[in-house]
Design a protein around this nucleic acid. Sequence first.
RNA 1: GGGAUUAUAGCUCAGUUGGUUAGAGUGCCACGUUGACAUCGUGGAGGUCACUGGUUCGAGCCCAGUUAGUCCCACCA
Length: 880
Amino acid sequence: MTDISMEKTYSPQGTEQGTYAKWEQSGAFTPRIDDSKKPFTIVMPPPNITGQLHMGHAMDCVLQDSLTRYHRMKGEPTLWLPGTDHASIATEVKIVEKMAQEGLTKEMIGREKFLERAWEWKSEYGGQITTQLRRLGASCDWSRERFTMDEGCSQAVREVFVRLYEQGLIYRGDRIINWCPDCLTALSDAEVEYEEVPSQLWYVRYPAKDGNGGIVVATTRPETMLGDTGVAVNPEDVRYAEFVGKTVLLPLVGREIPVVADAYVDKGFGTGAVKMTPAHDPNDFEVAARHNLPILRVINDDGTMSENAGEKYAGMTRESCRKQIVEELTQGGYLIKVEDYTHNVGTCYRCRTVVEPLISRQWFVSMSPLAQPAIKVVREGETRFLPERFEKVYFNWMENIRDWCISRQLWWGQRIPAWYCGTCGETIVSRDDPTICPHCASADLRQDEDVLDTWFSSALWPFSTLGWPDETSDYKYFYPNSTLVTGYDIIFFWVARMIFSGIAYTGKPPFDTVLIHGLVRDAQGRKMSKSLGNGIDPLEIIDEYGADALRFSLCMGISPGNDTRFSKEKIEAARNFANKVWNAARFVLMNLDGQEELDGKTLESADKWILTQTEKAISDVSEYLERCDHGLAAQRIYEFAWNDFCDWYIELAKSDLFGDDLERQAAVRAVLQYVLSALVRLLHPFMPFLTETVYSLLPRHEDNSCMLAPWPEYRADLMFEAEAEKMAGVMDVIRAVRNLRAELKVQAGRKARLLLRPQSGWHETLLRAEPYFLRLAGVSHLQMLSNDESFTDKVVSAVLPNSEVLIPLGDLVDMEKEIARLKKEEENLANEIARGESRLTNEGFLSKAPDQLVQTERDRLEKNKTMLETLRHRITGLTV
RNA sequence: GGGAUUAUAGCUCAGUUGGUUAGAGUGCCACGUUGACAUCGUGGAGGUCACUGGUUCGAGCCCAGUUAGUCCCACCA
């Protein structure tokens, strides 16, 4: 017996952090570039430096780490590249909030000081995040850790910006954009979230020039009428045909505005006439462009009404101005009616403020030339989504894409590399900071104040992190990446943009596979959020249950792309599983002698059975991991470890292990060692800490790391299907005996005799299984009955395909009950036979079903008939 | 308006190209200190696979429709 000291209960708290430190110090997270091997690369979706990691990050991390560990064990040079995201707007908002507590504003301290604070923030929170990732066991290559605003990433950003500008794909223009009046910046379309809000639809009469009649328009935003420069109707609408080309008067303001005909207007909605506010509505803006309507901006950046709105309203908020306008319209007799109306309003995805569409001069990326090839690579399967259905989401977005507004009126981020000449007005976009204007040689240059959308740099992450635009060895070897793992919530923000960016700048799509996972919800299925206060801190879970338990619980029972619930029950189940494996290992290790060697051993059925189960598990788990199906893989390992190995094999092994046959002992030890070693390695991607500890305790593995151990290889020579089936038959008998005993409520300690009447071919197997019956079924002694040998004592019995099981229990047996029970069995069996017969007399089944299935059905029917006969014989014997 | 997705045991969820009598965890009931583990063991109860129709020799799975929920996109003022 090996002398080992393993606690009775696995306690992760004492070992995990030390194990991680050892891994990290060993340098094993850093892959060796080997041109003869294909690498496996994952870049981590960089968490925002705005705060701590939540459960969603934990899941993201766990899925990536299991893939990483699996591929590393398979011997592929595996790179999982970590990093963090500067999260321009989100971080800036946080810093501003924090400064407000000190009574400071951005303007008070200025850009430079502000950026100093931002970098301090980065080093504090960025560090917290990487600490958390380590606690989770993330085996990423910290030597390659990146930040979206580090020098290299910023250089890549600059390169891309300049290239696109030179290609004419980046332009600056006055267009309607989404403006957040609270964050005081432009937003891209993707950054606006729509919310249904109950509101009203106001019907307002715009009188004709003489003050009478006119046109009634319907609007959800009466306050914007101050910026109206026209009214539009449908060209085919006879009701308004006479007005087209004429003008109406804008109430309260008295401005004369033209009536135009445009197909955009829906005759059926409202009154069929729409007021045009080109400066504050994207559709109106387009109509205005077609009809040369003037653009009048009446809302300021901060959401208040501007000078253009008129002296009376200037400075009012949008909300109070609306009230005021409605009141005045009512008084003036212009308000015809008000209807309740629910509509969607856009809100800022960071601060939830209602966004204001307004016309503004911003930088844009021209999307349609970039989108086309990005659609193609997915269409043609060069890049695939898992699950596949997310491709539809992707196509839908890409095919309807609009130009991307990339400038943000913020300070924290990559500054737009554009300079304006104060002398000649020239715009200079260049890779190096210009000192004089190339057009007029003036030195009066001013850099654009704005920064780029955070997602502009995230879009380059798969290659900017590897050194691009330089042709570094990392870039050449690890790009394109293999798999990208992320949640479905950022397909548009991030995945789509990486794909078109990768193709446009590197010529290759950035990864082959996009694995999309769902959200982690709370036990009630609600989204975890700060406002609900139902978020769970992964670190608290790790402290209480261990990282392995957390990891396993995040993998178990998940289905690709679907949301999952996090519950106490789940984490406890995972913790219990860790303990189970720990104890199985503890038992095995207590019984090993360090000389285990499977080859050359004489194996019995039980050994062959567990080896066969092991090979099947190896093959299944490998396949599931290849398919990135963590849920099935975890489930499969769980079953194998708990049911096959612990519940059956270890128990079966005990009779040999504690028996006198030294050869059997040695064989069983070798099998235990082999299976445990395979099990631990299969489990390692999911429970790295536990398995690392156990693996190092295995004989001759003192200095070996499970993390670097070879992934278990499927061995066809250890598959013993026929023997395994025999063993399964023995297990059926054991189960039947247990069942009978339990039904009769036989005390566990009370042994009973077991009589078996085997079917042909089973005598030897069952006879040899006697020790198993004794140990696992509470049997005192086995007696084999021949076919014609009758047995009429008081017995309970069961009929199995391989034998008739009889247990004489004397007065414990209530013969009435026993007969009733057997009759029920008889009925079930008869039904089963009837079902089989109807199938086998069905012409359609016989002619169309696969031959093999028909044969199976025949065999089964045959077997059932024999069993029924035995059962009837038994019943007759008892009733006579 | 368009699309996706979910509906399977009390609860949480699996169920690969259609093929035995639909599985697991958890909860529940009964029994149990059998030389790893009570974070355990053994046994048990518990399901018209949302509904309707269709295809098929055969449907939880495929098709059509219905109902209920969740989500995404679009943004008719």
